[in-house]
Amino acid sequence: MSGAPRIGILTYQFSENVGALMQAYGLRTWLRQQGADAKFVNYRPDYVEGGGALRNILSPANAKANAKVMFLKLMAAKQALFEDKAQYRMFQRFQAEKLGVDGPVLKTLADVDAFLRTPAGKFDILICGSDQVWAPSLQFGIDPVYYLAFPGGAQGARIVSYAPSFGKAQLDEGYRDEAARYLARFDSISVRERSGAAIVERISGRSASVVPDPTILLGDYGALAHDPAEPVSQGHIFCYALRSSEGIRDVASMVSRRFGTEVLSPYNPHRRWAEIGRTIKPSPGGWVAHIAQAGFVVTNSFHGTVFSILLRKPFLTVGLTGKRAGMNERARNLLETVGLSHRFVPGEEPAMATRLMDEPIDWDAVAPLLQKLQDDGRNFLKAELMRTNRQDSFV
């Protein structure tokens, strides 16, 4: 190959969600470590966080979609008015400095397609993923951009998915034909969950590799965990709660009493519950550093679980309850894969934490299981880089 392969990534690199930024950081950093010139295509659709456009408001069929649009618009307005501007700037700085996000913001399929026709938009490989980029949204449906379905053909770039998720174990039948049509165009397909591989095979007849989230793919976050730019205390209880405080509040309190240590919880702009312990406002890198320096981690988040494992911290993952219980699947599958199922505490049974918090974790037993996961993802992407090299050698 005459130079480093150029790789364009389409994911949620713009989100103010730490997990989304860390998976974006993991994929790009690992690809760059392999010698690739990897960058994000700066697609930022309004519907993901801003709600997007209202549909025919007189039609009852659009009621749920329009309600979702209005909810997201209200949340976006609330954040614009009341969000901590200093933390917002920290997220923006992380996106620019650590993710290398630059160039004009692209809002629509037409914007992205036009960009991919330019010299700056010439890539050897386009990769979509990770995160739930294949999950149809209530207000928008399937986004062809995240299926790399570009009318202009993207100047012949190889079309590859790395660890996208459909968001749940089944794809609604109304989206089946559209998704199958897009999947037929891919050169190589991988997904994040076994359920995603089953969906791909069922609707398109194609096989999909199951690979880990990019945070696991990279594995080493020392560059962020030991960043001296942000002071971090040591030995605290780090409580990373998303979507609900049910169960996790009780577990964090029990762990705090057991070890006599303060609970620190990172700020969540979508929080609708009273704070757990003391709220802190770290940068994305500072979030990693707080886990690295914690004495114990309590979380109900998949990425909170991932980083507890990667940084070898004693932890408990508390299950979400009720209608949100289906969101526990990712964390539970990961825990099972690396032999740590016993670190899961059902949200309805927080008292289980009493006997678990003192149990040591055998990290030596976890290591080869985690390594196998990483090898699955790395081997998939190395094969794609090799294919690109072989193709280029004949150009």
Rank of each mutant, 00 (worst) to 15 (best):
327 M>D: 13
330 R>F: 08
318 V>Y: 14
310 L>K: 01
335 L>Q: 01
303 H>W: 10
321 T>V: 14
335 L>G: 01
302 F>R: 05
329 E>D: 12
305 T>N: 05
335 L>N: 02
314 P>M: 01
326 G>I: 02
333 N>C: 06
305 T>C: 13
334 L>Y: 02
325 A>K: 13
333 N>Q: 06
329 E>V: 15
319 G>P: 15
312 R>L: 00
300 N>D: 15
329 E>C: 15
332 R>I: 10
310 L>A: 04
327 M>P: 14
310 L>W: 00
305 T>G: 04
325 A>H: 13
306 V>W: 00
308 S>F: 03
300 N>L: 14
300 N>T: 05
310 L>G: 00
322 G>A: 14
316 L>S: 08
335 L>T: 08
334 L>T: 07
312 R>S: 04
312 R>A: 07
313 K>Q: 07
314 P>H: 01
323 K>R: 15
304 G>H: 03
315 F>V: 15
333 N>D: 05
311 L>M: 09
319 G>N: 06
305 T>H: 06
331 A>Q: 06
315 F>A: 10
318 V>P: 15
304 G>P: 12
319 G>S: 07
310 L>C: 02
331 A>M: 12
321 T>H: 14
328 N>V: 05
318 V>A: 11
317 T>P: 08
316 L>H: 09
320 L>M: 14
325 A>C: 12
303 H>M: 09
323 K>D: 10
317 T>C: 13
313 K>S: 10
321 T>K: 15
299 T>A: 05
317 T>Y: 05
306 V>Q: 00
330 R>P: 08
317 T>H: 07
305 T>P: 00
319 G>M: 03
315 F>S: 07
306 V>R: 01
329 E>H: 13
313 K>G: 09
315 F>H: 07
321 T>Q: 15
299 T>R: 04
326 G>A: 06
322 G>L: 11
322 G>S: 13
300 N>R: 10
334 L>M: 07
324 R>L: 15
300 N>Y: 11
299 T>I: 12
327 M>T: 05
300 N>V: 04
332 R>T: 11
319 G>R: 00
304 G>R: 04
310 L>E: 05
314 P>E: 02
320 L>E: 11
332 R>Q: 11
330 R>A: 09
303 H>A: 10
309 I>F: 00
305 T>A: 07
315 F>C: 06
306 V>K: 01
309 I>N: 01
310 L>F: 00
316 L>N: 05
307 F>I: 12
315 F>K: 09
304 G>C: 03
307 F>Q: 08
311 L>F: 01
312 R>H: 07
308 S>M: 08
327 M>Q: 14
319 G>T: 00
319 G>V: 00
314 P>T: 09
307 F>K: 07
335 L>V: 08
319 G>Y: 04
302 F>I: 01
335 L>I: 07
323 K>V: 12
326 G>T: 02
